[in-house]
Simulated scan of single mutants.
Amino acid sequence: MAKSHSKAGSLKSVFALLLLFGPALILIFISTRGCEHKFKELDDYGVIPAFSFTNSKGKVFTNQTFKNKIVIYTTIQASCPDSCGVSIWHLDQLIYQRLRENRKKLGHVKLVSILTDENGNPDTDGKHLQDVEFMLKDRVEGYDPTIWMIVAGDAKAIYNIQHNGQSLLQKDKKYFGGNSFQELMLLADKSNHLRMVLPGKTESTIRTMRDHMALLEKEYDIKAYKLKKQKSAKED
């Protein structure tokens, strides 16, 4: 019975995001011959709010830190992996391992998890940061903190985004800890613009985020190809 309630809650969360980010979740991808694939680019929801996070070694991360990086942001709790806002196992298997195994090609893609308590409040205790890192080292194959960063700070600052008259900072008991943002993954492009939001509670939505990350990669590949083509044409 508890499992049924959990699935129902996840479906409600997905439905809420469909209303919030509507068309962006319905992606039409049409492949054609050659390098220039025709496809619908991810929508641009504007600049992600300014933030300042710190890791267990005291290093500070801000918007500028991730300039020219593609970043997936999530929350993480000291109670993980037993009780988490997102599915840590699927995040590991579907996204982190892809980044780790393709670090040469995808070295500019980072996974950043912001530590909160179960109610979504900032967890500034350095010991908890170390505890979470230890948990990931123990459970995640080849855990590399330069790829998957665990940081502390006010997660609400980065999730303080509105679209279509709705906010990502919704409160309802159906969400983990009563806060919708704790269940959400954000995809930011190299200019720190929000390009996709999806719940991170299920395998299917995390897999979809991985696919959207790949689509964003393709967008940059096509732009680079076109630029190279134009440069070559001028030289000729």
Rank of each mutant, 00 (worst) to 15 (best):
residue 2 A to F: 07
residue 2 A to I: 12
residue 3 K to Q: 13
residue 4 S to P: 02
residue 5 H to T: 13
residue 8 A to T: 10
residue 9 G to P: 02
residue 11 L to S: 10
residue 15 F to Y: 11
residue 15 F to A: 15
residue 15 F to W: 07
residue 18 L to V: 07
residue 22 G to Y: 03
residue 24 A to L: 03
residue 25 L to D: 07
residue 27 L to F: 00
residue 32 T to M: 06
residue 32 T to P: 04
residue 32 T to K: 14
residue 33 R to K: 11
residue 35 C to D: 11
residue 38 K to F: 08
residue 41 E to Y: 05
residue 42 L to G: 01
residue 47 V to S: 08
residue 47 V to W: 02
residue 49 P to R: 15
residue 56 S to E: 15
residue 57 K to R: 03
residue 57 K to N: 06
residue 57 K to S: 14
residue 58 G to K: 00
residue 58 G to W: 00
residue 64 Q to A: 14
residue 67 K to L: 08
residue 67 K to Q: 09
residue 68 N to Q: 14
residue 71 V to K: 04
residue 72 I to T: 10
residue 72 I to Q: 09
residue 75 T to M: 03
residue 75 T to H: 04
residue 77 Q to D: 09
residue 77 Q to N: 13
residue 78 A to I: 04
residue 78 A to Y: 04
residue 80 C to F: 00
residue 83 S to Y: 15
residue 83 S to P: 00
residue 84 C to W: 03
residue 85 G to C: 10
residue 85 G to N: 11
residue 85 G to L: 09
residue 87 S to N: 15
residue 87 S to M: 06
residue 87 S to Y: 05
residue 88 I to Q: 14
residue 89 W to L: 12
residue 95 I to L: 14
residue 96 Y to A: 09
residue 97 Q to G: 05
residue 98 R to G: 01
residue 98 R to N: 08
residue 98 R to E: 15
residue 100 R to F: 12
residue 101 E to F: 00
residue 102 N to S: 13
residue 104 K to F: 10
residue 109 V to T: 09
residue 109 V to S: 09
residue 112 V to D: 04
residue 117 D to N: 15
residue 118 E to I: 11
residue 119 N to E: 10
residue 120 G to Y: 10
residue 121 N to F: 12
residue 121 N to P: 04
residue 127 K to C: 02
residue 127 K to S: 11
residue 129 L to Y: 04
residue 129 L to Q: 07
residue 130 Q to D: 13
residue 132 V to R: 02
residue 133 E to R: 06
residue 136 L to T: 01
residue 139 R to L: 14
residue 139 R to T: 11
residue 139 R to E: 13
residue 141 E to H: 07
residue 141 E to P: 04
residue 143 Y to W: 10
residue 143 Y to E: 05
residue 144 D to Y: 09
residue 145 P to F: 11
residue 149 M to R: 11
residue 149 M to Q: 15
residue 149 M to H: 08
residue 150 I to N: 08
residue 151 V to T: 13
residue 151 V to M: 08
residue 153 G to P: 07
residue 153 G to I: 07
residue 157 A to N: 12
residue 158 I to M: 07
residue 158 I to N: 05
residue 161 I to F: 06
residue 163 H to C: 02
residue 163 H to Q: 09
residue 163 H to F: 08
residue 168 L to H: 06
residue 172 D to C: 04
residue 173 K to W: 00
residue 173 K to E: 04
residue 174 K to Q: 06
residue 177 G to W: 01
residue 178 G to L: 03
residue 180 S to K: 06
residue 183 E to V: 01
residue 188 A to I: 00
residue 189 D to C: 00
residue 189 D to R: 00
residue 189 D to S: 01
residue 193 H to D: 06
residue 193 H to Y: 10
residue 195 R to C: 04
residue 196 M to Q: 12
residue 196 M to A: 15
residue 197 V to W: 03
residue 198 L to Y: 04
residue 201 K to Q: 14
residue 201 K to P: 03
residue 203 E to G: 01
residue 204 S to T: 02
residue 204 S to G: 01
residue 204 S to M: 01
residue 206 I to V: 10
residue 208 T to P: 05
residue 211 D to H: 09
residue 211 D to L: 09
residue 211 D to M: 13
residue 212 H to A: 11
residue 214 A to H: 07
residue 214 A to S: 12
residue 214 A to M: 10
residue 217 E to Q: 12
residue 217 E to T: 05
residue 221 D to C: 07
residue 222 I to R: 08
residue 222 I to E: 12
residue 222 I to M: 13
residue 225 Y to K: 08
residue 226 K to R: 14
residue 227 L to T: 06
residue 227 L to E: 03
residue 229 K to C: 08
residue 233 A to Q: 13
residue 233 A to S: 09
residue 236 D to R: 14
